[in-house]
């Protein structure tokens, strides 16, 4: 059991949890992920690390309430426990001094962008961050991103806060100006697809982090397989970060929808079970 030492809701549908896991925290590196299981009947779901503190022996997870597992996660309180927490999994981000790096975080993807930006900043890069969400209520960690970015651009799709529009627009403007050495984009698959398409004409290396459906997270099941550069790769052990220009986005997008029907059924069942519970 892994104790939740602290929990807060970052937005009405996004939760942030700090979980006790000293051995994991000591090994964690930017870009890696964990697999959690909320309870005895729960699924194994991957979440990219939002933060960790080796000294304190904790890791931080951020999740948006989408399916049954993330809704269950949202119900947990400080003092409760996760039944399983496994990691750190996957390959860490490549951290080097590249020069000018654009960090693009979309929606809940702002969370994993944060530690990668910090590592890149510490490696001597100039960090330009673009964070975006559908609306003001889904935006979080603007302050944290502000603190470690040399330049921060905030967008909302509906214009309810900051600049109206999607993240690819300011990204294109930056690329147009030139001098960008690397782009790292994390968010919904469709956003990462369009970020990759935006940077391609400028030939700027673009890294995306693919949060595929997984079971074990150690290369055993192959559920998370993707086509990258014409080869089949496993997001869990070969990634989660890949060259966005080489990812076959059609397969990636299709594979995320495998269990759409079952996910809805499961969530409806969970929600009906919640009626009458406090």
């Amino acid at each position: 059991m892994f104790k939740i030492v602290w929990k807060e809701s970052l937005t009405p549908v996004i939760d942030c949890l700090k979980v006790e896991a000293p051995a994991l925290a000591a090994k964690a590196r930017a870009g890696q992920f964990v697999i959690i299981r909320v309870d005895e009947v729960g699924e194994r779901i991957p979440l990219t690390l939002a933060d960790w503190d080796a000294h304190e022996g904790t890791i931080t997870l951020v999740a948006m309430r989408v399916g049954t597992s993330t809704h269950k996660l949202g119900k947990l309180k400080s003092g409760d426990s996760l039944i399983d927490l496994v990691g750190p999994l996957g390959r860490p981000s490549e951290i080097e001094k590249y020069g000018n790096v654009v960090m693009v975080g979309g929606g809940v993807g702002i969370a994993p962008i944060h530690p990668i930006a910090r590592s890149l900043k510490n490696a001597g890069n100039r960090i330009i961050s673009i964070i975006g969400a559908r609306n003001r209520d889904l935006l979080f960690w603007e302050d944290k991103m502000q603190a470690l970015s040399d330049e921060l651009i905030v967008t909302t799709d509906d214009g309810s806060y900051a600049r109206k529009g999607v993240v690819t627009e300011p990204l294109k403007e930056l690329l147009e100006k030139g001098g960008i050495n690397r782009v790292i984009a994390i968010g919904p698959a469709i956003m990462m697809k369009f970020c990759s398409a935006t940077t391609r004409p400028y030939n700027v290396p673009t890294v995306v982090s693919l949060n595929a459906i997984m079971v074990d997270g150690t290369g055993m099941c192959g559920c998370c397989r993707l086509s990258v550069g014409g080869e089949t790769k496993f997001a869990c052990v070969d990634g989660p970060e890949f060259n966005g220009h080489e990812v076959d986005w059609d397969i990636t997008l299709a594979r995320q929808k495998i269990y759409l029907k079952e996910e809805k059924e499961s969530l409806a069942r969970w929600e009906s079970c919640q009626c009458g519970k406090s």
Binding site: V215, D216, M220, C221, G222, C223, R225, L226, S227, T232, I251, A254, R255, K257, I258
Partner: peptide, 13 residues
């Protein structure tokens, strides 16, 4: 890599 193709490991797990 189509949806509906499983490794036996995934299917059985």
């Amino acid at each position: 890599n189509l949806n509906g193709v499983y490794s036996a490991n995934e299917f059985l797990t």
